[in-house]
Amino acid sequence: MADLLDDHPTLSTVPAAAGEPAPPEPPPPLDETARARALLAAQPVTEGHTELPRSLDPEDLPPARAGEAGAQLWSLHVEADEGIVGTLRRIDAVRALVAACPEDLRLAQTTSEMAHARNCGRVAALLGPVAWTALGDSAATLRAYHALGVRAVNLTRFDRFARDAVREMNRIGLAVDLSGADQDTVRRTLEVTRAPALLTRAAPEGLPDDVLGLLGANGAVCMVAVTDDPSTAADVLDRVRTEAGAHCAGVSHTTAPAVGYVPLFAELLRRGWSAQELVGLAHANVTRALRETEFLARTNRIRPAAA
């Protein structure tokens, strides 16, 4: 299957029809907004964070097809007191939503299925992350979530269970999401994990430069929230690019769906980001991290299950 990284955006305009007597005026150079729009049309965004409504009332479900998204991670976060059953309800609700919107959504459990959904014109829906409090400190629960299609777990504290849990996640192919983790947790997790981490709701402003450097070495993806003012996210992403590397940049979600991602991508073009780096930001970096997680699991699963 063609790798999404190879699909470079077409930035040229349509050539003039043959047979016209005079060569047309050369088109004016595209401005950044037009280039960003063209890029996003060809390279839809993989959003790190999509939410179900708390109520799970079918009336309140979000619109199935979000503007510029090609894939979405569906958060399965629950309050601490909702635990496992609350998480299973959310998995069930996402599955029901996908089943109710077959023209728009398709469940994806692998990067191949993500690409396939896109080739079919559907938005790929990935399950995860689940909340750390929804594991009940049990590796069996971790494996049950994986069997139910979940592909990421949000590790927020490095407790006694975490070391074994991270190794088990590496073994079975669950991405470690470090959103909301303090720098100590990030450091300790990166010492253990052999797969790239995700930060589906990254807040890098809370992390010192050297931790960003560690994330860069790990290949982690810092998925940043976008607002109606593109310069805020652009500042954060510039810092990620400087301290961790452009391969660590990703998009979490937008708080201004009407505005979308074009102004951000235009702003980053103005700040000197290359088209290749922006493809990475849109989806290629997170796809690469998920693919490495899958690959590690394939090579790891010959090892026995953790107790």
Partner: peptide, 21 residues
């Protein structure tokens, strides 16, 4: 009861899957 029953059930399911492997 509650989540404890569900969690233990998942562990029971998991050990059957381990036996099958």
């Amino acid at each position: 009861a509650g989540d404890d029953a569900v969690s233990a059930t998942l562990e029971q399911i998991d050990i059957v899957d381990q036996l099958l492997e």
